[in-house]
Design a protein around this nucleic acid. Structure first.
Lengths: 283, 283
DNA sequence: GCATAAGTTGTAATTTTACTACATTTTGTG
DNA sequence: CACAAAATGTAGTAAAATTACAACTTATGC
């Protein structure tokens, strides 16, 4: 656990001199890890043993051990945190906050993904006769993206934005078909219905949605993504990115499963695009 | 820079005894940071000064400094690196790699974004009479997503996937219109043409694309995203996510610029969705 | 309001740790 | 094979961290 946070939190439990030490360290943790106990004691205007006691109060073995912990906390700059955008934020602030929140969400999402299920779903996808990707609202563009990816694999892929088309498509599904449904909340009624229809027609239904949601309960397999609450902006942001990344994972798993030859094929698909592009001049 | 990697890389430059030390450290770096120089020397079967020399060869001030660096490398928030997926990777590995690569790309993208331009583009968008989002292939879903976002703002937004529709739409554009074109490479011919058409009709053209590309040269404003090369999978992955996040930033800037009342409005839009969803039972 | 105890802080000595200078060994080269 | 250069180790030294204990501060009960 991050020792800097720990210092901030346990500040109340510190004695007067220990607070001095805490403040000096918090003011400039970067320099603290390069100081000796003597220097730090002098800077905080306390004695060396006080600094040592301060370290032990934080459950470290002593000063060197404390420095190690501190160094680790400082390692990745500042770990990305989900900070909400504030009304008073300027462009600099909100840009940073959004990028960092997105990264933080991805980190959380990564940890919540069930690898077993990923593997199983990749299995199913490679064997599918037809793959459908459906989502509504913000998740529609995720489904759209999935179409783009799997289309290159030369497998029958279906994607509709229209609810009625989605329904009809599922009506016609049969054994061997895989329907992937994408929804952050998992509470969109029409999507839950589609899951039911698809299952009634023997299709395998994979949900990319949140755990224990009504949609999750209707799916054969659930790839749940525990993404922290979206920011206050009343728009799905981070969840969408996590879904997309998961699609990337599935697509990658797909190509890996299909083997070498298949990837050469993929390269050829990419090469056909060349004609539609301006050549990159050699730099 | 990660010192563990550094050790691996400079292994060739080490002397015989130094290699012994390197191997012991690499074998169990976690225990290394908790050992004294004497213990480590004994374990590596070399003398203490050798360990010290080893540390200096890695551009650290000495053994304690080396331990600090090592601790940072081992911190669990290890900065994400763009590691390519390997053929032999299992589900666990490729999932991690993709998530981490995506995060790494976002970090790079964040640093490359020009805040000034973001601010200016937000300005333009808030004042636009009509906003169009166009992209092709993988970028189409990004444009699609942008539509989703800006649609909620109750501004005239346009999005087409079809090239001809895109062209026609641009033909009809006029002063006060903003056309946002999305392309990772910036070399897609038809998109460059669309930029030209839009500009001829007095629209402002904003490009979310790579710097100095043919498309970038045709745009009024360029939001360049320097995203590291996509992985070997022959599919755009990271670039797309960076583009989406940038769209999030623009959308957020938009709502912030529009002020409080506007966001209340946004909340109302969100609330209208409620009827289409299953209520969340209280937990 | 004073005495006493509990807690806090500092001083000085001790121990541990890291570093330096120099001696010895190993390796490579004419 | 001899010599030089590089590598490694030994022993001593300096620095850093820790411990034990003394002095001081603060709080509490009578």
């Amino acid at each position: 656990m991050n020792i800097l946070e720990k210092i901030t939190q346990s500040r109340a439990a510190f004695s007067k001199s220990e607070k001095k030490v805490a403040d000096i360290i918090l003011a400039n943790p970067q320099s603290a890890i390069h100081s000796s106990i003597a220097t730090l004691a002098r800077m905080s205007d306390v004695s060396e043993p006080t600094v040592n006691r301060f370290c032990r109060r934080l459950d470290t073995k002593g000063f060197p051990d404390f420095k190690l912990h501190l160094a680790q906390s400082l390692a990745n700059g500042t770990p990305y945190v989900n900070r909400h955008v504030d009304e008073s934020d300027g462009p600099e602030e909100y840009t940073t906050k959004i990028f960092e929140s997105t990264m933080a969400s991805l980190e959380v999402a990564r940890q919540s993904v069930d690898i077993q299920v990923v593997n199983r779903v990749v299995d199913l996808l490679t064997q599918a006769q037809k793959i459908s990707f459906f989502g509504l609202g913000a998740s529609a563009s995720v489904a759209h993206d999935a179409l783009n990816k799997f289309f290159r694999f030369n497998v029958p892929v279906v994607y509709f934005e229209d609810i009625l088309m989605q329904r009809m498509s599922c009506m016609n599904s049969s054994e061997g078909d895989v329907v992937v449904l994408i929804s952050h909340t998992g509470r969109t009624k029409s999507l839950v219905e589609i899951a039911q229809i698809a299952r009634m027609n023997d299709a395998i239904v994979v949900g990319i949605t949140s755990k224990d949601s009504p949609l999750a309960n209707e799916c054969t397999y659930v790839l749940s993504l525990e993404v922290p609450e979206d920011t206050d902006m009343y728009m799905p942001m981070a969840s969408r990115i996590a879904q997309l990344t998961l699609i990337d994972v599935l697509a990658t798993g797909f190509t890996l499963r299909r083997g070498n030859k298949f990837r050469e094929n993929l390269k050829r698909v990419k090469d056909t695009l060349r004609g539609s592009r301006y050549e990159k001049r050699n730099e």
